[in-house]
Simulated assay, not measured.
Amino acid sequence: MSEEVTAVGWDAIDQALLQVYGEQEPSHYGTMIPYSLGGEDPLDGISAYKSETPIPHWHFVTYGFSELYEKEFENKEYSGYGFELTFRLVRKENEEEPPAWALNLLQNMGRYVFNSGNVFRAGDYLDANGPICLDADTQLTALAFTHDPELAEIDTPNGKMEFIQMVGITEDELEAMQTWNTLGMLEAGIQQIPNYITDLTRASLLQNPQIAEAAEQGMEKEGSNTGFLFVSQLAWQVEKKGWFNKQSHVIQLGAKQADVISKLLRGRILKDRSLSLVGQNITIIFKAADQVGFHEDEQEITITLNRAAVDELSRKLVPQESQFELTSLAGVSFQILKTHIKNQEGEVVKTIG
């Protein structure tokens, strides 16, 4: 049986695109050597369509997060990881081929998912720690994920899947999404970025006073949807000091994330929701309670805070190297460490704190 006949998942994606673009022949970029056989690119292919509405742009669609051929995943309900990524990018006048950096970015997303097992869903976000297009003069340094406005969820012979659109966002937009929610922030800015088309030249949505106010009010009324935050510099240190070797516990955080953690504490704990900071070797969970304290359980630490403790901690969590204690939390101190932002070559390009 030929590969074309058995590519039932691929055909299902093509049928969905046929409903939008008719007989338009996209620019397609396949993979010569499969990732499973040592190839560099995890996705089997990426198609780029020319769209003219609402403005001229490239519409990229991936092939490879879902099951394109035979059914292999145990979960019968979903095809593969249950999604394919799309990406809409402003198309320059007379641009006949899509830019290579966008293809590389999508393949990088494939490496992230295939290597980590983490999947993307509408409402997610990802900090790129630098321009999403390397060496570009752009403020877009992170990515948000939402539903593609033209491609609905489909059923394939290998299970259902949805089209998740990737959107380039600025650093302050990322923080607003963390402290409020991604989809609310994107919806507030839909007039500025119709169809969530990425434009490397645009300024932050939060420069618009109405959008900034919507984000502020959203956080105050609804709190934050971010229940889990990965913190690269998170650590829990146990030290002994004094004549009686009394234990002292230190929570270490990076300066880059201190400010957003401060806001998340207010957006979660004050709304009676927990916040989990997840590091490489430790998870620290903050919970609302009348009594302030902490509980240590192997690789998980639980900190309980009341309103007064949240207020004090959020004031002291600033992006500056320091160490401090809370009035009501005995035996625990907080240490803010410098954060060094590095480029792909490992060189430090920015220091925070």
Rank of each mutant, 00 (worst) to 15 (best):
P42F: 00
I190V: 14
E216M: 04
A235D: 15
I282M: 15
E77P: 03
K338S: 12
E312L: 09
Q233T: 01
F60V: 00
D297V: 01
A176S: 14
F87M: 12
F163L: 00
S79H: 05
T179D: 06
D155N: 11
F145E: 11
L151K: 07
L140Y: 02
E239T: 09
D199T: 02
F230M: 09
G39I: 03
S276D: 12
T201Q: 13
D14H: 09
Q217D: 10
D272N: 14
Q207M: 13
N94M: 11
T146L: 02
E187D: 10
Q323N: 10
I251C: 11
S79A: 05
V348C: 09
Q323M: 14
H57T: 04
G353W: 06
E25D: 11
G189A: 15
E162A: 15
L277I: 06
L186M: 13
Y49D: 05
N94A: 13
D259I: 01
S36D: 08
E175F: 07
L105H: 10
F114R: 08
V260L: 04
A308Q: 13
A48R: 03
S2C: 04
S79I: 01
K241S: 13
L103D: 02
H340N: 13
D155Y: 02
E72H: 13
N306V: 08
H295K: 14
D14T: 04
E298C: 00
G30C: 06
Q165Y: 07
T53R: 09
F244M: 10
E93L: 06
N225T: 01
A188T: 06
K350F: 08
V167W: 03
N281M: 03
N129I: 05
T283Y: 04
L317D: 06
L89F: 11
L253R: 03
E220N: 11
N108G: 14
F163W: 06
D124N: 14
E74G: 14
A142K: 00
H59K: 00
L277D: 08
D127I: 00
Q233K: 12
F324N: 07
W243S: 11
Q19I: 01
R266Y: 05
A48I: 03
G130H: 08
L313M: 11
I285H: 04
R315N: 15
L18K: 15
A309R: 03
T53E: 13
F114N: 00
S51V: 04
F163N: 03
T170C: 07
Q335I: 01
G39P: 07
E239L: 13
I269E: 09
N129L: 08
L183M: 12
Q217N: 13
D199K: 10
M32H: 14
E325Y: 05
A48E: 07
M1G: 15
T304H: 09
M161N: 00
T201R: 14
G80L: 02
A215R: 00
S322D: 14
K241N: 07
D290A: 12
L143P: 02
E345P: 00
Q207T: 09
T339M: 00
R202D: 04
T351Q: 11
N104Q: 14
L305V: 03
E4A: 15
E312N: 08
V332W: 04
E67W: 08
Y81I: 05
D44N: 10
L337H: 08
K316V: 07
N245K: 15
N94Y: 10
I301K: 02
I301Y: 02
T351M: 06
L106W: 03
K241V: 02
V310T: 07
N306R: 03
T62I: 04
P319I: 13
